[in-house]
Design a protein around this nucleic acid. Structure first.
Length: 447
RNA sequence: GUGAGUGUAGCUCAGUUGGUUAGAGCAUCAGAUUGUGGUUCUGAGGGCCGUGGGUUCAAGUCCCAUCUCUCACCCCA
């Protein structure tokens, strides 16, 4: 017999963990639903042609591929096999793979179901995804993503809608956050104003590291990447202006900068109408996911915990283009479920009463009482109260220890005496208090 | 993909300069206790010391290889 072990980067979830995760996902779901988002699900498996080429070279490497069924070597690329070219061979022996995120499957979903949905389409989706990454702290090969997107509208009201979703969700979860927002056009405007429009990508990669490695090193890296010292200095001075009107003076003479300033003003005005409980700030140094975001970008950071971002998102113009349906604009956000869970765990934000699903355990003291126990257990269950019965007559210490271990708040002790009198002993496990009550009184008390 | 660590009971870990029969705590089971749990005490079961090779009279301990997991980088949630 081999020792059991888990596949790399995967986890078991204990009952207490599943209950907490469901609590967290339940809050996210109810917030999404209150905003008119509807749930969808897509298969864990997608065709490789759907997945490849969407996440860049790095992403393709991290895709889990599923071996074809049957004698898959028969159809294998003989040349690739002989050359030991794994990458090329893979495409001939694996036509399916596990989804890498929820966004690409969603794009395919929109294209294939465009006749069944109405735009603007607001959907949320909470499902696991898989990445063949090296696992490390807080990073797994199987993990849940929780995404909400609106497709088919360019309205900036949806940006504010999503910001308000972030604010409400984190407020209800009990986490104080800062919602940072920026716009791709701001960064483009800065690049143009600094005279380095051609170095836009290099510039954003560098300034994204600002809070991590500091101003000096960012400047050095920009210079290393071919940006002149003068321009690099200009970028850094512009990026420090986190006041919209002030920055507007510098970059509104550039086309993309002007549009971005207007957009962000509109988004801020719309957000104000929501009277949000969480802080929303303009952060021109925010530069994430710029390979596909085309407008507004956002990121959420916890104020009371040392943890990276708890979520992010932005606007994209052409989500479905890769699947032959051009010009579908969209805007979306993602919740980093695993990290949010960790933050809630360290800040002790899960309600303690979450664990107590079972309300009462019936303990029979003799064989005869075992059958009466079924009647009582069933009667209590019919009233929607979670009830269970210890399945055999054992020494009372053993059944009481079990009751204690599973943290059931009440037990009913059932022996000859109780059955004769019709008065059952209900014991509160935390106080130790015990009283003799009729079945109806017990049900009334447990409701 | 790059780099650094780790591996001894179900779990967390001791194990000295290589030296008798590899230990502890937790967990499990039984008893102290025949209608009352959390605490305590007693006892029991449980090990190819990750795997393969090497050095040695002698290897859990030293060397090599390999696998695993962990951590960091890249990237990302």
């Amino acid at each position: 017999m081999t020792k059991p072990s888990l596949a790399k980067g995967t986890r078991d979830f204990l009952p207490s963990e599943v209950i907490k995760r469901k609590y967290m996902f339940g809050i996210l779901e109810s917030v999404f639903q209150a905003h008119g988002f509807v749930p969808i699900e897509t298969p864990s498996l997608e065709l490789m042609q759907t997945l490849t080429g969407k996440y860049g070279e790095e992403g393709d490497r991290l895709l889990f591929k599923i071996l074809n069924s049957g004698n898959f070597l028969e159809e294998a690329d003989a040349q690739a096999l002989a050359d030991k070219d794994s990458f090329k061979l893979a495409s001939s022996i694996a036509k399916r793979g596990l989804r890498y995120d929820l966004t690409v499957p969603f794009a395919r979903f929109v294209v294939m179901n465009r006749d069944k949905i109405s735009f603007p389409f607001k959907r949320y989706q909470i499902q696991p995804v898989w990445r063949a990454d090296r696992p490390q702290k807080g990073r797994y090969q199987e993990f849940y993503q929780c995404d909400g997107d609106v497709v088919g509208s360019k309205s900036l009201l949806y940006e504010a809608d999503l910001i308000s979703i972030y604010s409400e969700a984190f407020t209800r979860l009990g986490i104080d956050v800062q919602i940072r927002i920026n716009h791709r056009g701001i960064l483009q405007g800065i690049a143009e104003a600094a005279g380095i429009a051609d170095y836009f990508v290099a510039m954003t990669v560098c300034i994204d590291k600002l809070d991590k490695i500091g101003e000096e090193k960012v400047k050095a890296e920009m210079i290393e990447r071919g940006i002149s010292e003068l321009s690099a200095g200009k970028v850094l001075s512009l990026i420090k202006k986190n006041d919209l009107t002030e920055l507007s003076k510098e970059i509104s003479n550039t086309a993309s900068g002007k549009k971005a300033i207007e957009d962000l003003k509109m988004i801020f005005d719309a957000s104000k109408a929501y009277h949000l409980k969480q802080e929303v700030i303009f952060d021109p140094t925010l530069a994430r996911g710029l390979s596909y975001y085309t407008g507004f970008i956002t990121e959420v950071v916890a104020k009371n915990a040392q943890m990276g971002s708890l979520g992010g998102g932005g606007r994209y113009d052409n989500l479905t283009g890769a699947f032959g349906m051009p010009d579908v604009p969209g805007v979306g956000v993602s919740f980093g479920a695993e990290r949010i869970y960790d933050v809630m765990e360290t800040l002790n934000l899960f309600p303690i009463e979450l664990g107590n699903i079972l309300k009462v355990l019936v303990i029979a003291l003799d064989q005869n009482a075992l059958m009466n126990g079924i009647e009582i257990t069933n009667a209590i269950r019919q009233h929607g109260i979670a009830c269970d019965q210890y399945p055999e007559v054992v020494k009372m210490q053993k059944s009481m220890k079990y009751a204690n271990d599973i943290k059931v708040p009440n037990v009913i002790l059932l022996g000859e005496e109780e059955i004769k009198s019709g008065l059952f002993s209900l014991k509160n496990m935390s106080s130790g208090e015990q009283s003799k009550l009729t079945l109806d009184q017990i049900i009334e008390k447990l409701k």
